[in-house]
Design a protein around this nucleic acid. Structure first.
Lengths: 346, 346
DNA sequence: CTGAAAGCGCTAACAG
DNA sequence: CTGTTAGCGCTTTCAG
């Protein structure tokens, strides 16, 4: 980045061949004499050549970059970007998404470009950036069920894949989890354990996953003769889990089982229960959701429903790649199966 | 992204002017007749033109993108990228960094390109990507004091700015906090409160900030006649904070003050203390560090030393921008002042 | 199997 | 104030 970077021309001169040949060697195109290939490789080495991305992009029409869009609902006012960002990252879930995405992209020397779409202005920005060719496609993680971003992307013809099914049909591929099935497993585990006075702490009900987990849980409970399940809504945070549990405990002091819609809230519930003199799992069994990193490390270790976030995220990236390359044209969906992980809390 | 995107040529034809003129209007260069300006603007509107980023980059030699490098020590084995990523994002600190960075970049229509440098291979990848011109410069957040990435970047001549002073001198600008001073404030607050049996939970001692906070705390304590302060090392996580506090409590049951090197650990300490029947702050006062989002929301609300992470991060981005634009050539450093925020825990 | 030549879409002198 | 003219560095036909 200091002195003038060597170009293909320089390497070609050094190797005594044409630019085209050097280009072929670098891009691994066959039909190049092995001897010349070696000569070129050495010339590249000597000159310290690195292909210029912009020039390459200009002709290939590909940036080797995908946008990772973190998208909120339409009502966040401008200027709250900072708070929005902080909130998103506070959830261990997002880190796992990034890990999965990078796991797929990196071996292919692609990178995620971070974008936030928490307001109408921000969404237009994102759209405009994408149409300028800042990225070859977009991976969208929405924090709300009624996020307008997916539809905007679809209308703009930008290749995009979503994490989680959009609330309204949008012609885009997505990956998701069988949330209801996961909630069913949690309910069955609690029931099998002998719990009879079961309550649940849901995630924010504006999120599809929260709704599905609650629905799946209620269904299973109802089928087992428990038509009524006390519910408290949380916000997927530790504190909200504590608050929700406090409320439930006040109204139902005899509770003996809790299903929390994510691990952070389950952890919060455990803490409140212990503060109020309940032993977990002896007096009250607690089941979480996600199997995030805290689940295994907190005390007591959380029994939870595993969501393979990393795998889902890397699949999301793989799908996008297929769309970008034109290998896949019609939207598809890949639904992952949750799995109960039994530890100490239930 | 579906049909052929319109080019400058198309807009020029539509407006009945030359490409150059359109370019001038779009880039806001003066010396263009207001009337023509309007005509061009309309032509842009009609054609739905969006400048091609690759083409522009090729000539301006600028991508409007900066790499946000999360960098670990040299010993992480390949394949652990996923765990590394998850760990990094689990810390609320990182979200604040991103928020600050984006806060600076977005108004300038720039974006952060996420890169991880947790192994030697990954570092070479990052370096190679940067030399290809994937980004105009790099913002580096290291998880360890002896991170080799800064030096590699400096050697490669890549414009870069660091978050936190590197352990060995590297000719790069950086932003940092006066950690020792923050720790001093924490110590003074505890002492002023009347605490006499004070312990501290440090961050991982491989991190410069942890070392500085510990040193500053010890210094102040020593000057106040407390030559010995029991120490337990934590890992900046809630669990590690709980574990550290448990250990300290076992050996020093009469503790009446705790300084934890970040809020997460302070929160963990509070929980352990309450579980063991200590009231916070009545029996034991607890001071955290960072003033991250949990500090205000957890119970009891944490008295803590505020680190203005967002501001530091956006300053870091601003410095990088100056370096990229050539407005600044020599490395500089900006040190921020911490500030004690008194809430409930101490 | 290799080279010559034609752009990709844009900016930036340089004339006028 | 506007148009003409060169490229930026690379890939990719198309000849040979």
């Amino acid at each position: 980045m200091s002195r003038q970077a060597p170009t293909l021309e320089d390497v070609a001169r050094e190797a005594g061949v044409s630019r085209a040949t050097v280009s072929r060697v670098i891009n691994g195109v066959r039909n190049v004499d092995p001897g010349i290939q070696e000569v070129v490789r050495q010339a590249v080495e000597r000159t310290g050549y690195a292909p210029n991305r912009a020039a390459r992009s200009l002709v290939t029409r590909r940036t080797q970059t995908v946008a990772l869009i973190v998208s909120g609902a339409g009502d966040t006012s401008e200027g709250e970007q900072s708070a929005f960002t902080a909130r998103v990252f506070a959830d261990p879930f997002f880190g796992r998404v990034v890990a999965g995405v990078v796991g797929y992209l990196r071996p292919r020397s692609m990178h995620p470009l971070l974008m936030f779409a928490e307001s109408p202005e921000a969404r237009q920005q994102v759209l405009s950036d994408l149409r300028q060719g800042s990225a070859d496609g977009a991976l969208v993680v929405s924090t709300h069920a009624d996020d307008p971003m997916p539809a905007l992307l679809a209308d703009a013809g930008v290749p995009a894949v979503l994490f989680a099914r959009p609330s309204r049909p949008v012609p885009l591929s997505y990956v998701d989890l069988a949330h209801r099935d996961g909630a069913r497993q949690a309910a069955e585990h609690l029931l099998k354990r002998g719990c009879r006075r079961i309550v649940t702490v849901t995630g924010p009900l504006g999120v599809g996953a929260s709704q599905d987990r609650l629905a799946g849980f209620r269904d299973t409970m109802a089928r087992s003769g428990h038509p009524y399940v006390p519910v408290a809504e949380g916000g997927f945070t530790l504190d909200s889990g504590m608050a929700a549990m406090s409320g439930l405990l006040a109204e139902h002091p005899d509770v003996d089982g809790v299903f929390a819609a994510n691990d952070l809230m389950a952890q919060g519930a455990c803490q409140v229960l212990r503060e109020r003199g309940r032993r977990v799992p002896d007096d009250v069994a607690v089941v979480g959701f996600d199997d995030s990193s805290v689940a295994a490390t907190c005390r007591p270790a959380l029994t939870t429903v595993r969501q393979p976030v990393e795998e889902m995220a890397s699949t999301m990236a793989a799908l996008l790649d297929e769309h970008i390359q034109g290998l896949r044209t019609d939207p598809t969906s890949v639904i992952f199966d949750p799995e109960l992980v039994v530890r100490e809390s239930a």
